[in-house]
Write a protein that binds this DNA or RNA. Sequence first.
DNA 1: CACCAATTGCGACAGATTCGCAGTTGAAAC
DNA 2: GTTTCAACTGCGAATCTGTCGCAATTGGTG
Lengths: 139, 139
Amino acid sequence: MPQPDSLSLTQRLKQAGLRLTAPRKVILRVLDAADDHPDVEELHRRAQALEPGISIATVYRTMNTLAEHGLIERHSFAAGRARYEAQPAEHHDHFINLETGEVVEFRSDEIERIQQDIARAHGFEIVSHRLDIFVRPRR
Amino acid sequence: MPQPDSLSLTQRLKQAGLRLTAPRKVILRVLDAADDHPDVEELHRRAQALEPGISIATVYRTMNTLAEHGLIERHSFAAGRARYEAQPAEHHDHFINLETGEVVEFRSDEIERIQQDIARAHGFEIVSHRLDIFVRPRR
DNA sequence: CACCAATTGCGACAGATTCGCAGTTGAAAC
DNA sequence: GTTTCAACTGCGAATCTGTCGCAATTGGTG
Ligand SMILES: [Mn+2]
Ligand SMILES: [Mn+2]
Ligand SMILES: [Zn+2]
Ligand SMILES: [Zn+2]
């Protein structure tokens, strides 16, 4: 059951009872424009480009707040910095191209279904999951 | 194509051209005895119990070395410390019980196959992957 | 327009892991 | 059995990512 994703990030932020502050306006715009999976430093860089003065601590805190409220997803594909994306309309998993660092999204209803089946067989209920596939181009 | 897993960790260590030092003897024994997914602190604790004086820096370095040579697997189920296990004979994925912290292993040949198919369809070759499923007991 | 809890910027702090370095030691070669 | 020396170790300092305390600011409601 995905959330009402027809709403903009801004609308969802207010709906969650959070304040639409100046830094958040900028960060939400950055997230909305992103078609990749930027880390906090990159988000900060992009936000700074739009509006200098935003603190990186605020980016960190905002990502925490947005994640807690389900407006974004946090990933940790590799060691090091976490990476983020706006909560997608439909769940997907990721290929990480080890040669380029590029991240490609995919989705398999079949895999999703099997996960459910196995979890149920073990007496579990799935809260969340992540499937990260590290790949390289076929030669 | 799994590696020659019939060999003991010790044998594989030597075969990799690594030195079988006193601390490593202990750490390998700890890894071999573990049936769970301990973190560095826990490994250090267990190693200390067998042989006081082993430094945690050595445990860190040893885990890196063993991982580089494919003798162990490193996991990061949650934020915080990484967790380890001896390279299993057969690949498996993990359920993480959010209520107890317990880790349960499972394997689905079907999921593995589908991953291969999708990767191939994208022109990728899989190097590695991880599927972590965070669950709770069904009420 | 006043009010006040939520939010921000800043620098200090924390947790996990890595690193530099001097001393030790496997194990290969005498 | 000795010698030899690069690999390895212990220690503490350093690094890196992320969090926190606090005083100042500010959304948004009345
Ligand atoms: Mn999935
Ligand atoms: Mn798998
Ligand atoms: Zn994605
Ligand atoms: Zn496991």
